[in-house]
């Protein structure tokens, strides 16, 4: 994931910064507990397409 993109990209819900999780291939917003998919290199910045992070995932990413 392009560093410069992460510097300007925000969570569609809380408008906070996102983290790139290369293992999952997703952009995570810890504040909202949401994971935004990246499909074929294209981040999908839509609330409806996001997945809720599990408690385990929240623990792991601490």
């Amino acid at each position: 994931m392009n560093r410069k993109l992460l510097d300007i990209l925000v969570c569609p819900i809380c408008k906070g910064r996102l983290t790139w999780e290369s293992g999952a291939g997703e952009l995570h917003c810890r504040a909202c507990r949401l994971a935004y998919p990246v499909r074929d290199g294209i981040p999908v910045m839509l609330e409806d397409e996001a997945r809720t992070l599990s408690v385990e995932e929240m623990e792991q990413n601490k």
């Binding site: 410069k4 993109l5 300007i8 990209l9 925000v10 569609p12 999908v44 910045m45 839509l46």
Partner: peptide, 18 residues
């Protein structure tokens, strides 16, 4: 081309002044 993103044109998920 730095990035292509799926996004709503009426809700641009970027910081101000980007």
């Amino acid at each position: 081309v730095e990035a292509l993103l799926e996004m709503d044109a009426e809700a641009l998920e970027f910081e101000d002044n980007s």
